[in-house]
Simulated scan of single mutants.
Amino acid sequence: MNTYKDILLNRLHTTINHKNKIENDCIKFLSYDITIEPKIVQMEKKNSILCTIYFYVKAPLFDNIFFESSSSIASDEYKAIELSSDNFVYCALHGILDFLSGIHHHEIETSILGIKKNFTVCESPIIGLGNIENKEDFYDDYVEFDEKEGYSSFLWNSIHKEVPFILENNRVNFIKTYAAKMPNGDIITECTINNVNNKTLENCVQNEIIKWDNSGEFFSIKQFFFILQSDYTYTKYPYTKEEIEYFVIEYVLEFEKYNFNYSEFIKNIKNIISDTNIREEIINFVPEICAEYAFRDVIFNERADVNIGNNNYNILKTQFTSYKYIEDALIDRFSNKIFKTESFNELVHISNSYNIIYETMRNNHNIKMEDIFVSVTFNFTSEYKFI
């Protein structure tokens, strides 16, 4: 008897329109160096079957693993697995294969901290679920033609002005857009860049979806954008995630060694982390990350002001390649009690965010945490070079 995993793998194997084989519970392509690892994470049986499958896609060109979650509701387990699998194949995977074959629909010129960057964008097909009146007319209205760029989906049109300001210095950036309008008119959006939720994109998509007239019926839509940085502007980040984890551990242990005497610690940290760039990033990011986890109800701006010498910028925190690596390493080590609890508290207290929250509460005794908005500034020396 076939297991759910067998059914899923066989469905992928037969529906993917490229030569592939099943190997070690994964799908491996024969013509592309691509591996898909699918995992069924939910099979909920009520009046209908709710199935959720996670897909992890690895390719040499990708800086990070591409992740997609695909859910479906059907009358039985087998049909639910097939629907979730097909939704992935005909939307996300179709876009990945177009992207890797060299197809692109748009070009982007931007800069990150004053450094020029060029990108090309490949759109995946759009996939929709549910019902909406005059669906064909709806798509015609929202697919536009531009003489320079060709056809653009309405989802791309809704986000394209913001995209240049959120791209990371990766070889490849992944953007996911998803929106659903419920029968009662409520709107749900999920937009991510490189698997991290982005509120700016979600607001852009919501402003488009609010125009839908779904006549009291459910409807959802999803599309991906695969964004390749030019060879001429791409510089590979010099450290791996594991190396960043090592630097973070050394930073906190050194902080503990000096018994939380911050001024003495800062004088000597260059003997532990010799690279100016990563040292300055860790010094800036660690206290602020701790503060965000300490004050979960406070609203933290996902963007930060950045001063490099006499130059001033504003970028997403996650546009620093090391930021998510530092966050993951820091929170994992504190969660597993590798560092002292007291260290976490001391790091929170030296953060700019803590000072902002403290002053806000001191000046307004009745304010609630969820009404406090914190925006931070990162200060770098003129020696710092963004990569």
Rank of each mutant, 00 (worst) to 15 (best):
R171H: 12
V172H: 07
I175Q: 01
I175P: 01
K176I: 09
K176Y: 14
T177Q: 00
A179I: 12
A180R: 13
P183C: 06
P183N: 05
D186G: 12
D186K: 14
E190H: 13
E190V: 09
C191H: 07
N194E: 09
N194R: 10
N194P: 11
N195T: 12
N197W: 00
T200G: 05
T200Q: 13
V205R: 01
I209A: 14
I209R: 03
N214P: 00
S215I: 03
G216H: 01
E217M: 14
F218K: 11
S220Q: 11
K222S: 15
Q223F: 07
F224T: 00
F225W: 07
F225E: 08
Q229M: 15
Q229L: 05
S230K: 02
S230N: 09
D231A: 11
Y232I: 08
Y232E: 15
Y232L: 15
Y232D: 15
T233K: 07
K236N: 12
K241R: 14
E242H: 09
I244T: 14
I244F: 11
F247S: 04
V248Q: 07
I249L: 15
Y251R: 03
E254W: 05
F255R: 01
F255W: 03
E256L: 11
K257V: 00
Y258P: 00
N259W: 08
F260L: 02
F260T: 01
F260E: 02
F260V: 03
N261W: 01
S263K: 13
E264M: 10
N268K: 15
K270N: 12
I272P: 00
I273K: 10
S274W: 04
S274V: 06
D275V: 04
T276H: 10
T276F: 11
N277A: 07
F285Q: 05
V286M: 09
V286S: 08
